[in-house]
Design a protein around this nucleic acid. Sequence first.
DNA 1: AGGCCGATCCTCT
DNA 2: GAGGATCGGCCTA
Length: 221
Amino acid sequence: MEPRLPGRLMLREFFEASPERVAPRLLGKLLVHRTKAGILAGRIVEAEAYLGPHNETPDPAAHSHRGPTPRNQVLFGPAGHAYVYAIYGRYFCMNISCEIEGRAGCVLLRALEPVAGGEQMARNRGLAPGAIRHGGRDLTGGPSRLCLALGLTRAVHNGLDLLDPASTLQARDDGFAVHEVMATPRIGIRHAAELPLRFALPGHPCVSGTKSFTGRRIFLR
DNA sequence: AGGCCGATCCTCT
DNA sequence: GAGGATCGGCCTA
């Protein structure tokens, strides 16, 4: 029997908007991966917006900044698809495409809180099964850590539709309510480093880089 | 707790 | 041929 997935599948319209608008509203939603080893799911607690070249505000930190290339073509396709890319030769990062087809833009997932499959996530991270400490920070706190924990790779997952009920990787909503979000500069970039396009749940243990957590509080309605 | 550094390879110019 | 949307280990306090 198919085990039931947590929450409800999200709607594509949610992602057919500016990443700046999507990213804060994505906090609290679920990323769910169906694997042979069971369901691996995490709640999104930190995300960054990367703006497409059509945008009024130039975003030279975005992979889509110079237009379509073989690597970034998913970003110019329809909303709600996974953009997974390799970084520093060893790791992957996971994004969700935004905007309508023909316009680029995405949200980088920077941290999850483990919701299902924590023991398997620990195995995927090379940690002892009982080593789920700090609310899961060691498992899924960081853009490449969460890819390792959920077993996400470019070869398998790049381009997957996260809003297809048949997909093994889905964006879902279990009704978890988020009212308050922090906005700060993005992490680890050289260009456009001052734009406040990083969003996180204030004080959440899985959020990376808690040190430089100077930013504005945003209230969602 | 915070800073520095090496690993490692793909992508684009 | 340069430069990453990173991580973990090792160093100093």
